[in-house]
């Protein structure tokens, strides 16, 4: 279980700094599939980075399974079972896909297991095993390998940042299936940042993050009609 309590994040700039995350409180339960959506620049990625420990909050607390992790490093959080698939995954010269997956898993992975992870993200596995995770891969391929690195881990909280970005329709269906089955099996709680209706449809609950704060929160049955209304009003995810 992941709890965010009154989380704020301010960066330097302006007179009192810029508040990117403002007083966010959220709980993601075990077994829950949680989708975060909202306008660009709303603070979704920042929230994910705060949970992973890449950024440190200026205020508030983060609890994992009841234990406070606010002061822990990225490495420590990773070892406690937090994982994060980047929106823009970095590339590594000289590192093969197989090695990266093995590093993610924590131990060398047998070929057939690697292949299973790759197939599950829509990559024809054998072709990719010994490819390097460098500039020779397209953005969509990188994204899918990034997602596979989380599938290679048993996590308490798995966060995916816009997994659909740059992915063709066919691979996208494979991906949706993977989130539905594999991720549910390997990850206790799943948080997906997404704008895709098909991913939102998988959600137990959704949060709309806008202007650095929780603009709406509820089940998909509650959120969907309100989201559509807002979009039809053409004024985006504004509060009030």
């Amino acid at each position: 279980m992941l709890e965010l309590k009154n989380l704020s994040f301010t960066v330097d700039g302006g007179e009192r700094g810029t508040e990117i995350i403002r007083d966010v409180s959220l709980t993601v339960n075990d077994g829950e599939f949680f989708v975060i959506t909202g306008p660009n620049g709303g603070g979704k990625a920042t929230l994910a980075r705060l949970i992973m420990g890449i950024e440190r909050p200026t205020d508030g607390q983060i609890l994992l399974n009841g234990r406070e992790i606010t002061g822990l490093s990225v490495t420590e959080r990773a070892r406690l079972g937090v994982g994060y698939a980047f929106q823009q995954p970095p590339r590594f010269k000289g590192m093969t896909v197989r090695r990266l997956l093995s590093l993610a898993h924590g131990n060398p992975l047998p070929e057939d297991v690697c292949c299973e992870y790759l197939t599950n993200v829509g990559l024809c596995s054998r072709e990719y095993l010994n490819r390097e995770v460098d500039n020779s891969l397209s953005g969509g391929e990188m994204k899918r390998i990034e997602i596979a690195t989380l599938m290679a881990r048993d996590l308490d909280v798995a966060i995916f940042d816009e997994p659909e970005a740059g992915i063709d329709l066919w691979s996208f269906s494979v991906l949706v299936k993977t989130f539905k089955s594999m991720s549910r099996r390997k990850h206790k709680s799943v948080i997906i940042i997404s704008h895709q209706e098909r991913i939102m449809q998988l959600a137990d609950r959704l949060a709309v993050i806008a202007d650095g704060t929780v603009a709406d929160l509820g089940t998909k049955e509650e959120i969907f009609p309100r989201l559509m209304n807002d979009l039809n009003d053409n004024c985006g995810f504004r509060e009030g």
Partner: peptide, 16 residues
């Protein structure tokens, strides 16, 4: 060494 690369590997549980 690119900072994102280091961060990525730390998110897999490695020390810097």
């Amino acid at each position: 060494i690119n900072n994102d690369q280091l961060t990525k590997l730390c998110t897999l549980g490695m020390t810097p």
